[in-house]
Computed example of a mutant assay.
Amino acid sequence: MIAAGNGNGMSKTGSGRRDRDDGGNVERAKEGSSRPVTMATVGRLAGVSQVTVSRALSDPSKVSPATFEKIRNAIEMTGFVPNAIAGALASRRSRLIGALVPSITNIVYSSMIQAFSEGIAGHGYQILLSETGFDPKEEERAIVTLLSRRPDAMLLTGIHHMLEARRMLMAAGIPVVELWDMTETPIDLCVGFSHVETGRAVAEFVLEAGYKNAATVSAGDERALRRKDAFVKEIGRRAGIDVTQINFVGGASLARGREALRILVDEQNFKGGAIFCSSDLLAHGVLIEANVRGLRVPDKIAVIGFGDQDFAAHVVPPLTTVRVDRTELGLTAAKAILARFDGEPPAGRVKDIGFQIIARQSA
């Protein structure tokens, strides 16, 4: 597919000296040049005017099939790439979708973005991906940068943003989808699940399993802390249990999971019970440390993770965790944005995909 552009489009090719071809009517830059190939270069090689090339790129039906074939061959020979910025100015479409995630390496977010990418595949759009960490100010800076590229839509992780970031997104007048969370007042569209309800559901699971003591191990992600707080509050409300809490600043790791259990046992005098971790990675670290210490799981301690990552079912013992359908998240967001591009009214501004507790042998 050939994208629209104009004579300012460029692609590196050829040497500074040009060879004449086709009876002296066309030129082609030799390999090694720093001179750009422009739309005029393509026109000379195809034996047509620059205006004809521009017309063919914007709407192939405006030129004859034979002329279009000449232009297409010239583009292939030169490696010419049409100027997408100029095309966007003309069409008011950049064919870009900005996406912001806290961590590119975290499978929870990367698999969600992969599903979103698959959902828009074949529709002519590309993703501009930015990693923001868990800092709202860093997210705001990334939003400024992406909006300056005039994306056709924005995909955000979470619902809590700086006030100025919200203002900029609302003023942009483009579809905005907030993922991985729930709110009744989204910027535009929201696809996610309730982190508070997740924490409450895990608390209910722990109490129904008969555990009389509990602890939490959490990374510094705001959403993880909301799940943890809801778990602690529900355990306290329903059973009067004082939950021991280990909170880390920053992200999760196996080392931090191991360190958390060490602190619980050696410093907090944790005698056993259920440990709710904010991620499967932390939970896996807890399992490793429990094995090193000879603590039987789930007899002495029960371990519950979050995310149902690929390894969760294959650790020893298999990890009880909370599953969120990340594929459905990404695909639902893609469908919502594409529907907006097509002018279709949304079925609803908020889509709750829910969650599921997957009970395995660790609890």
Rank of each mutant, 00 (worst) to 15 (best):
I113R: 00
F116C: 02
D59N: 15
S117V: 00
V108C: 04
I97M: 07
G133Q: 09
L96Q: 14
P102V: 06
V48Q: 03
G32L: 09
E69N: 11
G79D: 05
G79P: 04
A74T: 04
K30V: 10
V101E: 00
R44C: 02
V63K: 03
L89E: 08
T38A: 06
T78A: 11
A90P: 01
T105K: 15
A66T: 12
L89K: 07
E69I: 07
G133C: 08
G98L: 01
S110Y: 04
Q126G: 12
E27A: 11
L100V: 08
A115H: 01
T41A: 13
D19Y: 13
A99Y: 06
N25I: 07
G47N: 08
V53I: 11
S34H: 11
P102K: 06
T52R: 01
S49Q: 04
A90C: 05
R92F: 01
E31L: 12
G43L: 03
G122H: 11
R92L: 07
M39E: 02
F134C: 06
P60V: 05
R44W: 04
S111L: 09
F80Y: 15
A84R: 14
I71G: 00
I107A: 13
S103H: 15
R28A: 08
E27Q: 14
I107D: 07
G98R: 03
I127T: 10
F80M: 08
V108E: 00
V26H: 07
S94I: 07
A29F: 11
T132M: 06
P102S: 05
A115T: 04
F68N: 00
I127E: 04
G32P: 06
S91H: 10
F68I: 02
L45T: 00
I75M: 15
G133K: 12
L100Y: 05
L129A: 09
A90M: 13
R72N: 13
S117L: 04
Y125F: 15
R18D: 05
G79A: 10
S117W: 02
T78H: 10
V81N: 12
D22E: 12
I71W: 00
T52N: 06
Q114E: 15
S64F: 04
T38K: 09
T41Q: 05
A115I: 01
S103D: 11
V37R: 01
A84P: 00
P60T: 04
Q50G: 14
F80P: 01
F134V: 09
Y125T: 03
V101W: 00
S94R: 05
N73I: 08
L45F: 10
S94M: 08
V53C: 08
M112Y: 03
R95T: 11
R92Y: 05
S33G: 15
I107N: 06
R93H: 12
A74D: 02
I75Q: 03
S111D: 15
R28M: 10
N25R: 14
S54D: 05
K70D: 03
A121R: 15
S117T: 10
G122K: 09
P102R: 04
P36I: 07
